[in-house]
């Protein structure tokens, strides 16, 4: 069986890629995708910890289910906001969304 640490390393890598995407990408949709990657990294962590820990303690699984329900709600609102932004400005590039600064 693959040891727990591999899952954790994988999740940490996925989380870092997601975070890099959020910070470096300019396209709003790509930023949202980065956030999804971060949340999925968390889910991998949770499920792996549950599988390698006490199987009767299902907190990890329950947590993961709640995380992806919340993630779905979050991305639904996020895409709606991106659409309303696109209708006004005809762009989804984050660096052009800069009406307000300082």
């Amino acid at each position: 069986m693959v040891s727990l640490s591999w899952y954790l390393i994988f999740a940490a890598a996925l989380f870092s890629i997601g975070l890099y995407g959020v910070l470096a990408r300019k396209n709003a949709i790509a930023i949202l995708m980065g956030i999804e990657l971060m949340l999925n990294a968390v889910n991998i962590n949770l499920v792996a910890f549950w599988r390698y820990g006490d199987l009767a303690n299902i907190a990890g699984q329950a947590f993961a289910v709640i995380v992806f329900a919340v993630a779905a709600a979050e991305v639904a609102v996020g895409l709606a906001l991106v659409i309303s932004l696109y209708r006004r400005r005809n762009t989804v590039a984050a660096d052009e969304i800069n009406l307000m600064k300082w």
Partner: peptide, 19 residues
């Protein structure tokens, strides 16, 4: 964007604490 990013980071901390 800010809220979703920071809450994902916080959640990663939660997953480590639980784990």
């Amino acid at each position: 964007l800010f809220g979703a990013m920071t809450s994902a980071i916080m959640l990663y901390g939660f997953s480590l604490l639980y784990g």
